[in-house]
Design a protein around this nucleic acid. Structure first.
Lengths: 237, 237
DNA sequence: TCACTTTTTGAATCAGATTCATAATACGCG
DNA sequence: CGCGTATTATGAATCTGATTCAAAAAGTGA
């Protein structure tokens, strides 16, 4: 029946409106100042209508985090198309991720907050699944890189799955971002330029995996050059 | 004047009471169900009294996170006393951290929540500084290990500071824990036994740093044995 | 047009953090 | 002691903001 489909479409469109407006409000007034009533009002709907879409505020935030990962995902997919060795592409994942984090502080902060057990648990099962599956393409990209490397004989096949092999750099990125976000922590440890350190760490790790061609860690410029190249060829293209 | 000191002591004792009771309440009813009024009541004090200690609920949580890191810190200090090579001791840091995380889910969840920008920003400056400095001893332990390794010629001196060199394993641990906490994430990536993977990753990283003696990554049993040894000699001693 | 279903509405409810006027207590002094 | 002053504790009242739900509106089909 056509009517039902139209309704469905309108419902989805309204949901998108809510999410867009929510992001705008967060951007303008901060994550903690988002109010359900005000969000509904500023979309010219009643509070109750908002609750027909999202079972709770947490549910809305999870949906928002999922939706705004889309551009994040897009960046990873550009790595797939990039003409470079698997090792360089794997490194590019870290560079893109760091770049994205730097350029999208609002999204980053939101994701951190949403993945807090406290928030995560208060969202609907459905919403959580959706948010996770929105990240699947990233896993795809990474798995492909690892497979390529093994196929070319540049990475020893240890019998582990692709994602297991890619997990190390992922943990490094995630861990570093998590430390960076903790205001005052790295400063109090006397650590500057954490991002540069992260890039170095990824190379240390890839070397440790014996992922060819190895990077000469004494040649600091080499890493910088590679980062620049990735910025030029993948990020700003 | 003696009176002032006694008052001071009593004040501190009451603060400890609040924190202990808060932890008990969280343990019993969950982090999100902690209520300031109920906490005050269950300590036989008025709500206002509680607010003489903590400027906000967030402030209380940060204080709690800081206080409960004490046993965490204790574990690290036992590593310092452990008779083993710097490399093994560095690895022990990861093992102890993972073990602690596993055994203290309440504390782990609390720390994650507290370090959320949203919470962190709402605590008083003072409280945040205190919480950070309660972790300083951990940095001390780790720095010492790195220094020992360099002094013995087992780790190439690259001119970086100790903490910068130790940051990699730290990021790995932090990142992995953060991924583990995200319910359903690793499952949806088909990753099992993340802890075992983490230990492997730390060795990969230390090998990548060229930290002697290198670990043979094909010998899976070797890592397991070392983990067992650390559990026996450091954790359960 | 009417009876019935679905959706929207937003004021009312509810939860819980925070405040603050008042009461209680402690302190210093004659 | 007793009294005036200063400090601290109290908890009911306030305030913020999420969530609900009875009533109104809109949609649907005959």
């Amino acid at each position: 029946m056509g009517t039902t489909e139209r309704k469905q479409r309108e419902f989805e469109q309204r949901e998108r409106l809510f999410l867009e407006k929510a992001e705008a409000l967060i951007r303008a007034e901060g994550l903690m100042n988002l109010q359900m009533t005000r969000l509904a009002e500023s979309c010219d709907y009643a509070t109750g209508t908002l609750y027909q879409h999202f079972s709770s505020k947490e549910d809305l935030l999870v949906a928002l985090a999922g939706a705004s990962s889309e551009c994040h995902v897009g960046m990873f997919q550009r790595i797939q198309a990039w003409q470079a060795s698997p090792r360089d592409r794997m490194f590019a994942v870290a560079v893109c991720d760091a770049d994205y984090t730097l350029k999208n502080p609002v999204h980053t902060k939101l994701v951190q907050y949403v993945f807090t057990q406290a928030v995560w648990e208060n969202a609907s099962e459905q919403r959580r699944k959706a948010a996770l599956s929105q990240c699947d393409p990233i896993g795809e990209v990474v798995s492909t890189i690892v497979r390529d490397a093994i196929d070319r004989g540049e990475l020893p096949a240890t019998g582990q799955r692709e994602m297991e092999l890619a997990l190390g750099p992922w943990c490094l990125c995630e861990g570093m971002h998590s430390l960076i976000r903790t205001q005052g922590l790295l400063e109090s440890c006397g650590i500057e330029k954490p991002q540069q350190l992260l890039f170095r760490q990824v190379h240390i790790y890839l070397n440790g995996m014996d992922w060819q061609p190895l990077m000469d860690l004494n040649d600091n410029k080499a890493i910088d050059r590679l980062v620049e190249r990735i910025r030029a060829e993948v990020i700003e293209s």
